[in-house]
Design a protein around this nucleic acid. Structure first.
Lengths: 212, 212
DNA sequence: GTCTATACCTCGATAGAC
DNA sequence: GTCTATCGAGGTATAGAC
């Protein structure tokens, strides 16, 4: 689209780098606002006007950065997926795989209870189309899934994870903790702290409802 | 509102009863359509126009039966709650409480996989207000919760259910199976039958991910 | 690139004839 | 009670001045 990019002369300070930094900082602020609003109200209830107000720019300016509401949501999902990837990468891979999976599930719940987990409808087709074509999101999802999948296999091999469950069922079960409504229900009950809630849901997830 | 109701003469067949039967039958058709559309697309994506088209009446006629979109959804929720209540009532109460809880969870998943489970956003406040003032829904929810609560207590007393979990956490965990996205994920994978999917999720719910 | 202003659309809800 | 026709609110996206 933009063809006339001025070539900086030798010795000239890199103006374009500064502008790009501003550009990136603004997009970062936009994604932060989108992330917060998606976590608070969900995709359908979030309006682009709200995003513009929260960022403090005009709505039309938003559309210079992101071509559609779906792309805004995809950017937020890509960021949280990158956060997940970085978290998993930072874990000590020499520990027991079951403990690593537990830490992964705990992390998603902490993010959700902190109001930082975007919630998207699973049925919206235009949104799914945008998500599946968003490179950052898809790449992050792939890497996260491969890492978790390796730990699942290892945990089944060492006898700590139920080997009768297909690995994909385990993977989906862990992903589902990120949007588990039980967290909100228990929070709404007002009887337990966030730590207690997470320990309870972790217990039901890994140990089940039946007594051991 | 309607003040001029003709008084039937003695010996005249009960016309009003017939009219009411028609009225009930039409409202039943409306609730069925709403239930199906809520299960398919969710509350936000469902439009009142779609409901009218599916029922085969004008949109304005819908509003003669139900005063708002929220009331349509509440009616659908009340019906499915009544179905749940009737299912639980039909179970053999002399069986082991843990088995009764398992049957309850299985039923909600069967309803979901059959495309008959309405899905509502948990954050929409106007919807929540309507739901909490809908007598049929609230009464059904109370009775279902009391019945499940009794079985939960009994199962913890007989040592089959983890006694360390608060009963309310168990109750919410069971309710959450009705909208568990894992069912749809696994269905979308195309690798397993509905029965296999339900058995897998039941296993993770009651036995947990860890090996026993 | 950002702003104001608006086009265009969809949706929930209603008025009024029949 | 049902219909046609429409209103008003609110949504995404864009045009054009600066």
């Amino acid at each position: 689209m933009a063809s006339a990019v001025p070539t900086p002369r030798p010795g000239t300070p890199p103006k374009r780098s500064f502008r790009e930094q501003m550009h990136i900082a603004r997009e970062d602020a936009i994604v932060s606002a989108v992330n917060r609003l998606l976590a608070e109200k969900g995709f359908d209830a979030m309006t682009v006007d709200e995003v513009a107000v929260e960022v403090g720019i005009a709505k039309a300016s938003l559309y210079k950065h992101f071509p559609s509401k779906e792309d805004l949501a995809a950017a937020a999902m890509a960021r949280v997926m990158e956060r997940a990837r970085a978290f998993l990468e930072g874990l000590d891979g020499s520990r027991a795989p079951l403990e690593l999976l537990r830490d992964a599930a705990r992390w998603t719940m902490e993010v959700q209870l902190a109001g930082e987990m975007p919630s998207l409808p699973s049925e919206n087709s235009s949104l799914r189309a945008t998500l599946t074509t968003h490179k950052g999101y898809v790449d992050g999802l792939m890497e996260v899934s491969e890492r978790l999948g390796a730990w699942i296999s290892a945990a089944q091999a060492d006898g700590s994870l139920n080997p009768a469950l297909p690995p994909i069922a385990v993977l989906y079960t862990l992903y589902a903790r990120a949007c588990d409504p039980v967290l909100g229900f228990l929070k709404g009950a007002g009887l337990y702290s966030n730590e207690q809630i997470i320990e309870m849901v972790l217990s039901t997830c890994f140990d089940g409802l039946r007594k051991r």
